[in-house]
Amino acid sequence: MSRVSQAEAQTNRKRVVEAASRLFREKGVPNVSVADVMQSVGLTQGGFYKQFASKSALVDEAAAKAFADMVGCLAALDDDHGGHDAAWSSLIDSYLSPEARDNPGSGCPAAGFAGDFAREPEWRDTYAAGVRDMAGWIATEDTGLAALSTLVGALLLARATAGSPISEEILRAARKAAARLTE
């Protein structure tokens, strides 16, 4: 059996973190095992413990990576839309869409990790830092936090009611409310 080079190990670690982030947001942390994560990237469970101290360490790293990626996407929106106001409007439309509602694995980490992290204080510092960074992109402290809370809350409610008419109503009402928050 051959040893994995350092470059391959780094690539594998990155793949594991990305897969874990997606699976944890999609299915919930308690519903995803280390074996599930490793299987999703074609690696053995034994290799996991060469890279991570525990599942908890992976959860924290996966959340931090998801928030960093999200903040990077938010920053790119400003460039893509020629300014922050147009970027914010674009974010509202995409964030509060049926596609975002129906695809939690690739969606916002604030919404995707909210339920699990509320029950597990071990990861709250990572979550709080990510929320602060996202809110900071939106607007000043209070306004940014209120706007992000509107987005995340609406997305969670829309997911919980998916398949019923109120889900679409929640998305529509929240789009209107979020737009007014930063005027």
Rank of each mutant, 00 (worst) to 15 (best):
residue 30 P to V: 00
residue 127 Y to Q: 01
residue 145 L to S: 12
residue 136 G to Q: 00
residue 163 G to I: 11
residue 161 T to N: 06
residue 151 L to K: 01
residue 125 D to F: 10
residue 62 A to R: 03
residue 89 S to T: 14
residue 33 S to V: 04
residue 88 W to P: 00
residue 36 D to S: 09
residue 64 A to Q: 13
residue 22 R to Q: 12
residue 122 E to I: 12
residue 130 G to P: 04
residue 163 G to V: 11
residue 154 A to R: 05
residue 90 S to F: 05
residue 115 G to P: 06
residue 117 F to M: 06
residue 147 A to W: 00
residue 139 A to E: 15
residue 171 L to M: 03
residue 34 V to W: 02
residue 40 S to Y: 05
residue 106 S to F: 09
residue 37 V to W: 02
residue 68 A to C: 05
residue 64 A to S: 12
residue 176 K to E: 14
residue 116 D to M: 12
residue 81 H to L: 12
residue 96 L to F: 03
residue 135 A to S: 07
residue 115 G to V: 15
residue 111 A to F: 14
residue 26 E to P: 03
residue 90 S to V: 03
residue 64 A to M: 07
residue 59 V to A: 02
residue 152 V to Q: 03
residue 41 V to I: 13
residue 24 F to Y: 07
residue 84 H to V: 07
residue 112 G to H: 11
residue 110 A to S: 15
residue 158 A to G: 12
residue 67 F to D: 04
residue 26 E to G: 02
residue 132 R to H: 14
residue 48 F to M: 06
residue 35 A to W: 08
residue 89 S to A: 14
residue 121 P to C: 09
residue 106 S to C: 07
residue 38 M to N: 00
residue 65 K to S: 06
residue 64 A to H: 04
residue 39 Q to D: 08
residue 146 A to E: 14
residue 116 D to R: 13
residue 56 S to V: 13
residue 123 W to M: 05
residue 91 L to C: 04
